[in-house]
């Protein structure tokens, strides 16, 4: 079992088979553009685009909904605060609390935009394993060090998690029960420090082992990415869709 679950990374849908690079570029542009839009028309268009991608990825709906629920549980806090604090025309008043029209509109817009981005990312980016993600980022000429950082974090997170579990077990076996006292704080501080030191040592040993196998600063990939015609077609389609999204936001005359 891995420390990171990747429930969407396996599949045979069109989305899974598309080249990871075109998916990543599309996802990044889509996320930035959607974050920038200010109108409902554009936000809803973005949501529609994201849903089309989701349909292409043929993911298990239940798991997608579960993930959306997690994201939206953060957005609930916005609904609890923003409509009451955003200045504007009051539409509903209850005691000292007043809900404003502008507050409701902006909270709704944020909700639509966040969901569009999350769905888009699930469909485009979460449909590849982390290792493929790292490889694709490397091929997209992102800084090598960041790509290595991603891949190594992924590889050793599990090992470090196990180390953490072992330490916690060892604490429990010797009768440790967390409470609100200095002993508990000190113990947790020791635990965190020990994990840090061990991770550092392990990084050292991993690097030594890599040196022993002739590592000299560059990774050579077995390179299984291959660009095909459908990737180009998807790229063009995604580009057009994003242009349309931009047109809906900035090209159409706004109703004011």
């Amino acid at each position: 079992m891995s420390a990171i679950q990747e429930p969407f990374s396996e599949g045979t849908s069109l989305m899974h088979r598309l080249d990871p690079r075109v998916r990543l570029v599309a996802a990044a542009l889509f996320a930035v553009l959607t974050a920038a839009v200010q109108t409902y028309a554009a936000a809803l268009a973005a949501l529609a685009l994201a849903l089309v991608c989701l349909a292409l990825a043929r993911l298990p709906m239940r798991k997608v909904l579960a993930r959306l629920l997690v994201v939206n549980s953060f957005i609930i806090f916005l609904w609890l605060v923003l409509p009451f604090t955003y200045p504007g025309d009051v539409v509903w008043r209850w005691g000292p609390l007043a809900v404003t029209r502008e507050g409701l509109l902006i909270t709704g817009l944020i909700t639509v935009k966040s969901n569009a981005i999350i769905i888009g990312l699930i469909a485009l980016a979460a449909t590849m394993p982390v290792t493929t993600l790292g490889q694709a980022l490397q091929r997209l000429r992102l800084p090598e060090k960041l790509c290595h950082l991603l891949l190594f974090t992924y590889r050793y997170l599990y090992v470090i998690e196990q180390e953490y579990r072992r330490l916690v077990q060892a604490m429990k076996i010797r009768g440790f029960r967390p409470g609100t006292n200095l002993h508990t704080y000190r113990t947790y501080a020791n635990l965190a420090a020990m994990l840090l030191v061990r991770s550092y040592d392990r990084a050292d040993r991993v690097y030594q082992a890599m040196l022993c196998r002739g590592f000299h600063g560059t990774f050579y990939s077995l390179g299984t990415l291959s660009w095909q015609r459908r990737d180009g077609l998807f790229g063009v389609a995604a580009g057009l869709a994003l242009l349309m999204l931009g047109y809906v936001e900035w090209g159409l005359p706004r109703p004011r």
Partner: peptide, 18 residues
Amino acid sequence: DQLFCPTVLEDVAFGPLN
């Protein structure tokens, strides 16, 4: 400490690639 690549094949091929 020695196996750092995601899959077995990649790890065993790491040395020859270097």
